[in-house]
Amino acid sequence: MLGYSITQWLFGILSFLAIMFALMVVFTRNPVNSVLYLVMTFFCIAGHYLLLNAQFLAVVHIVVYAGAIMVLFLFVIMLMNLNEETEQQKTLVTKMIAGLIGGVLLAVMVGTLKGAEQMQLAQGGASQIGMVKVLGVVLFKDFLFPFEIASVLLLGAMVGAIMLGKKEIKS
């Protein structure tokens, strides 16, 4: 097919969809639609993981991001009842500052990518690197310490969230 393999076609289509949905997140007026487009973006990214033969990462990405975190986002937005009509109109200054900050972030990211080392990955089809067993061994043998530190960090965040939530009830 036009000199491209199926994987390359899938990569192209998924990338196009991911970018399109990501843009829709920003451009759509309704916050609930925004969240739903973000969920679609996550699905496209999970598709990319599948193309890299990282099935575990793909499913965990869906379970954690699309299945749990975005549902909580959706909760909050649905309960706040934000609508197109009630949405505040941003002033010109706010828009300009937001644009500037976004542009600076883009510059940083482009700079980082340009300086990044290029390396050849093993062929997707034969690679075992994303399999659960390989991933488990790597996480619990080679990277045990950073892994545990990350879990302590999450625990700290959780305790903090509960503390903040409790304070509100008392006052």
């Binding site: 609930v32 739903l36 969920v39 099935q55 575990f56 499913v59 965990v60 869906i62 379970v63 699309a66 299945g67 749990a68 549902v71 959706l74 909760f75 649905m78 399999m131 659960v132």
Partner: peptide, 25 residues
């Protein structure tokens, strides 16, 4: 036969929540 079959089931179930949430909203 997906080699992460159970996780697949969990993943799809977690997506099922959206049907109820979107419908209810």
């Amino acid at each position: 036969d997906i080699n992460i079959g159970i996780l697949y089931v969990l993943g799809v179930t977690s997506i099922g929540v959206y049907g109820i949430m979107i419908g209810g909203w």
